[in-house]
Nucleic acid binder design. Sequence first.
DNA 1: TGACATCTACGAAAGACTTCGTATAACTTA
DNA 2: TAAGTTATACGAAGTCTTTCGTAGATGTCA
Lengths: 135, 135
Amino acid sequence: MTKQNKPTAAELEILAVLWEFGSATVKEVHEKLNEIKPTTYTTVLKFLQIMTEKGLVERDDANKAHIYRAALSQEQTQTTLVSDLLEKAFRGSALKLVQHVLETKPTSADELAEIRKMITEAEKQTKDETQGEKK
Amino acid sequence: MTKQNKPTAAELEILAVLWEFGSATVKEVHEKLNEIKPTTYTTVLKFLQIMTEKGLVERDDANKAHIYRAALSQEQTQTTLVSDLLEKAFRGSALKLVQHVLETKPTSADELAEIRKMITEAEKQTKDETQGEKK
DNA sequence: TGACATCTACGAAAGACTTCGTATAACTTA
DNA sequence: TAAGTTATACGAAGTCTTTCGTAGATGTCA
C-alpha cells in the first residue's frame, strides 16, 4: 500500500529538475536549480536525502557522486497533485476544474482545437466502453 | 498589492463550510466540519482567528457569537490554487493541465458535451478578440 | 604522503501548520 | 447575585518544512 506521496513545494522544484534530466548528481541539480532560485548545495543535498527516505527519489550510490532520479513519473505526480486539488477545492468534480481553467486562463485557438480533439477521442472511448453494458 | 492568499489544507476545509453557509458562527462551522472530520470547537475557533489575521475570513463581532464569512469567493480561491498548481507542476501550461485531467479522470458523455460547449464559446470569444488583428 | 578539492552525513534552528487545554468574559435565569 | 452555560482569548506543544553550517570521508596529484 503506497503512501500518499505528495511532494512539498520545494521538493517539487527538485523533482522538476530530475524529470528534465532523467537522472542527476546533487551538483547537477544544484546548478540547474540555482539558475532559477538561489540555493546552496547542502540544501539541495538535504532535500534529496529526505526525499530518498520518503521514497520520492531513488539513489544510485555506486560511485562517489550519488546519482538521483525521480521515483515517480511526472505524470503520476501530476495525478496525485490534481486529485488532491480536486478533492480540496472542487468537491472532486473534474468537470468543474476544467470549466474553471477554461474560464480563467486565456486559451489560444490552437489550444482549444487541441482540447476539442481530445474530447472527440474521449467520446469514442466512452462509447466503446459502454458497448455491451447495460446502462 | 494583495498578498498571495493561499489557504492551507485545514484552512480550506473551513472555507468550504463558509462558502456553503455564506456566513456562520464558530459553533456552526464546528458542527458542520465535525460531520466530516472529528475536530474540537477550540481548534476551529483558533483557525478562524488565524484566518482573520491572514485576511482569509472576515469577522462580525457585533454580537457575542462572532459571525465569520470568507473574504474571497470560492472562484477567486480556486483561481489562486489552480495558478499555483499550474506553475509548480505544469510549467504554467493550462492546456497540459486540461489534457491531463481529461486523460486521467473518467469523464461522462454529458460532461464531455459540456466541455465541448464551453470550447465553442471560448472560440467565439477568441475570434471576436482577434478581429482586425493580423495573425 | 600531504595538501586540496569534492562529496555525503549529521544535526540544529527557524518558521509554518495543526491541535488542544486552560483561562476568562458575557449572558441567562431562578 | 450566584450558578450554569456559551463564547472568545491565549498560549503552548508537536510535527513538518526549509535552510544551512560543520564535520568527516574519499579521491587526486605533485
